[in-house]
Design a protein around this nucleic acid. Structure first.
Lengths: 334, 334
DNA sequence: TTGTACGCGTTATCAA
DNA sequence: TTGATAACGCGTACAA
């Protein structure tokens, strides 16, 4: 493995000049650059990432913490982050915690060693030890989707409350009066916001909202499945259900199928987060679509700008949109 | 930021002892270790990743190259890789090329700088410049899913040919005689193997296979959509279609829906790679399921073993399984 | 068991 | 415009 000294020797210049030439700095003669480049090419020279990181005090790696890279929403965020990062010659380290707060904190502390120049995170942990660790991050931090209590950093999100309120209002307009929600953990601000929008729609419709129609704390397919089964026990059954996120929806759909109920005849379904197969499900599932890819790009952008020295960056709020499909219909009049 | 010198000073030992104590080496007194740990804790000291990588000549980062992290198959591979890597205190850098060979090669060369200790790759590029770049990788290399021509490295795969042959034979047993295949690029060995299994089943059934029933070179949703539309033009129409992978299947399904045909009444569908929503599609889609997560783990394992000095590792072949759902039925007799 | 001192390969500073 | 050289912070022979 050729080093910078070898190149310098072969090109007949100093190591400092090699660095400058290869970075195409203006202070180097075209002739010198040519010599250096030729030498580097001949020796297959590539500057060492470790040495550069050590010397500059910063790596060219951006971290992305997600609860589950297997969830298409986060995969799209990852792709967006990566694309934007690549434009600035940064690469991405992705850490997926399987919704496991323990694992998440462990991962977080293992990155306090300067491996990452910056971190974009969607976290599930909420205990204090965790937020401390998150706050102790070296380098800039950006939050994606939700902000854990007490963490101060720019957040990329959608307007959960507003879009939810609008969507649920549409259900009321269709004639539904008993709309349930499978919500996430109470300490997720996204869950709070979506729930808040949900309540606002109820209020606007002048309808009382019985507690039993809100199921808190559900996450993932398993959570959606369980919560939907509980809802189906209710008497009278809700005529429509709003699911906190995509995987929760999948679980809920499986429960409905097992109960041999028909959508939307027996029950209407609205998902938060779209999936590429939702149009093909029986029946096609209506969803509130978040611009996941763009959220990832925005997060990377925020990180890069901080790395460039910008301060005081604010939150980025992107629009979510309602996609109407056949899983929503007026309640059957029995 | 506290450095090793600060810790050494505070603990009243040398920097060498700090290193040894924090790595819990046997040659250090318990008392000394305690002192050092206390000092490190008090100063919030964390050894620098860059310095360690430089000094040891190797980072603790494993790379994963995939065509598209948004594809759940690769996301699961990534999760498996990451989980196994974490057990050995390695982290993962994920690079997704959007099926763009240009981008892929660019990414590859940008990692020749020792950022990665090892690389696991599923690639789409096939030109020579690319394979050269892949071969020039620093550190161990492992291939996932498919092997590009001329690359010598352990491969983690499933037995594409055998499982495909078995699955297609089942279709013949159901009574199908006109089974089409939407295949991938001819220079993907996975495409070749699945195609080979497909042909074997035809042979075993004693049925001639007209060229028109095989559509080469399709990838992604767009590819599946296009190919399916071509197949639907055929007269007579195939009574069953085997799709090269999950996303191709999604595209194909959308084409069928647009054509207002019914599955399996008008046409049967078999996918390669399962998806979590396939059971909920109208109708539930039969699929050949690859153990993506396990493939990722196996790849990481192969990488780690090479990093430990093991040589001459062979390919890993994992079992794929047929999942029968309602998209497969005997052809309607008209 | 612990300390000293050098090397790892760049980048940045300062002088020429 | 270019060169000499001092960091950067850790790992590790080698010495004690």
């Amino acid at each position: 493995m050729a080093g910078i000294r070898d190149v310098a020797k072969l090109a007949g210049v100093s190591t400092a000049t090699v660095t400058r030439a290869l970075r195409d700095e203006a202070s180097v003669t075209a002739a010198t650059k040519a010599k250096v480049r030729a030498a580097a090419l001949r020796l297959d020279y590539v500057p060492s990432a470790a040495a550069r990181a050590l010397s500059r005090g910063r790596s060219n790696l951006l971290g992305l913490f997600v609860p589950d890279i297997t969830n298409p929403f986060y995969a799209q965020v990852a792709q967006g982050l990566e694309d934007r990062a690549a434009e600035a010659r940064y690469h991405c380290v992705i850490a997926s915690s399987h919704l496991n707060p323990e694992r998440e904190r462990h991962l977080l502390t293992s990155f306090q060693d300067g491996t990452l120049a910056g971190l974009a995170a969607t976290t599930v942990g909420t205990d204090e030890g965790f937020t401390t660790a998150l706050g102790a991050t070296r380098g800039p931090l950006v939050l994606v989707d939700r902000r854990p209590r007490g963490i101060k950093a720019p957040l990329v999100r959608t307007d959960n409350r507003k879009v939810t309120r609008g969507a649920i209002s549409q259900l009321f307009e269709m004639g539904h009066t008993r709309i349930a929600m499978i919500s996430g953990p109470r300490d997720f601000d996204t869950a709070c916001q979506r729930l808040s929008g949900f309540r606002l729609a109820y209020k606007a419709a002048g309808t009382a909202l019985p507690d039993e129609l809100i199921r808190h704390g559900h996450l993932g397919e398993a959570g959606g499945y369980k919560a939907m089964n509980e809802l189906l026990e209710l008497d009278p059954r809700p005529t429509a259900v709003f699911c906190f996120n995509n995987l929760v929806t999948v679980g809920a759909l499986k429960a409905i199928r097992e109960a041999r109920l028909r959508i939307p005849t027996d029950i209407s379904i609205l998902a938060f987060d779209d999936m590429n197969l939702f149009p093909l499900v029986d029946p096609p599932i209506s969803a509130i679509d978040q611009p996941a890819y763009e959220m990832g790009r925005a997060a990377a952008d925020l990180l890069l700008r901080q790395l460039d020295g910008e301060r005081g960056l604010g939150d980025v709020v992107l629009p979510a949109t309602m996609i109407m499909r056949e899983s929503l219909a007026p309640p059957s009049t029995r």
